[in-house]
Amino acid sequence: MPSYRYPVPPASEITPRNIFLNRRSFITGGASAIALAASGVNVLAQDQDARKLNAVASALSTDEAQNSYEDITTYNNFYEFGVDKSDPARYANQLTTDPWTIKVGGLVNNPREVGIEELLTGYDLEERVYRLRCVEGWSMVIPWVGISLASLIDKFDVQGSAKYVAFETLERPSEMPGQRAIFPVLPWPYVEGLRMDEAKHPLTILAVGLYGEVLPKQNGAPVRLVVPWKYGFKSIKSIVAINFVEEEPTATWHKQAPREYGFYSNVNPNVDHPRWSQKTERRIGGGLFNQRIDTQMFNGYEEQVGSLYENMDLTKFF
């Protein structure tokens, strides 16, 4: 039987009483909430209290046991900081995430730069507790805070010819040691893409937070994609560009090994990775004797996303 470690926040993470009470009044008193938002609180300030985000719960969240803050922030694949799972937690603190803008362009009539402040204050932040399944065969349950990607796309006058959305991660070798390696492990910058209907699906979010606080740098601060029915590498981190395009965009892992990583990369227990099985997964947090669990079609989101792939041969479009 799986026994998960429940998140026990360290004392430093626990909300101080006055802030806690503030948040209460924030939630109950709509007027004060508006006032606060209008005052443009700098949520990126390093001050611990200011790291808190106010997010409403979502019906799209899973009620499965969540992984601990520690597990989520110390076990990361973010090759810009090194290939070891502990490298991002060790080196990502060098990354400057303020100021930060996303250049939105391509086949759109009103291209512009979107500042991170706009994402944090101009939208209703939601908490989305999602399963995350890595292509390597492990999984977590993560309480993201974010906005639906569709709500951002809707702000743009996208041209009819746009069929896909392309994303790009920051390339800044001075702050990303993995990008300084003599033998680059991946071609930089990291790029990813979604079909337009996938991008606009209600499950797809731009995450700006974790456990009710701004996103830790090792998890892709200040803003990353989360597509919970696809393998984790589709959920591109530290996004600096979003482009609407007509042709299927390239994706970094697909470019690296086209036989092993397709454009879609939907979680699918029936289509193995050429080198290993995808039938089961190990949920992180259960310790040394954790039992494997069966991997679900579309990572358990089949009901919501299955229709996107009707009449598609998923062994071909893997």
Partner: peptide, 15 residues
């Protein structure tokens, strides 16, 4: 370290 859960988030893989 693995038995004492001191090998990080995924002690099995580390071991």
């Amino acid at each position: 370290a693995a038995f004492m859960n001191a090998l990080g988030a995924d002690p099995l893989k580390a071991l």
